[in-house]
Amino acid sequence: MKNNYGNDILRFILLVAIQVLVLNQIDFGGYIDPALYLLFILLLPFEVPGWLLLISSFFLGFSVDIFSHSTGLHTAASVFAAFVRPGVINMVGKPAEYEASLKPGIADMGFRWFFIYALLIVLAHHFVLFSLEAFRFEEFLYVLLRILASTAFTLVFIITTEYIFMRKRH
């Protein structure tokens, strides 16, 4: 089956726009910095080639970076999130070959599957992002709090968005 990435490109642009124009400008109270743009990495089809996954994630992070003067931070975190994605998929269960048209969303894989899948990737991303951001061991507790609080918020945003735009399978 030939894959058409038109939807993914559109999603890339929309998510980066929402991230840098809306979410980054809102104050969520110091510890919380949600990264809705990760939904792009999460929703790429199962059969996406590794190089495409990594490179598109690189540009995803880079686009967010140039809008927030956080040179390289989101790039590093996004590339890492893309790197762990195949492993996470293997861990939470890959659909069998004959189900090749399935997509990694709530509609196809169910809430439980998607929740664990998203949680692990978001955690990996936030861990890299906030550790590199503080880059001081003395702020360990602060970083930990930031990772946990932001992961919770990012998950809420991602799952809500997923439900809003979910297409029922017929």
Partner: peptide
């Protein structure tokens, strides 16, 4: 292991961006 090596290259590129702000 091209997946791993590409990851390494991109991650190092990102870290260089951070280091040479």
């Amino acid at each position: 292991y091209n997946f791993f090596f590409l990851f390494l290259v991109l991650e190092v590129a990102a870290l260089i961006l951070i280091a040479n702000t």
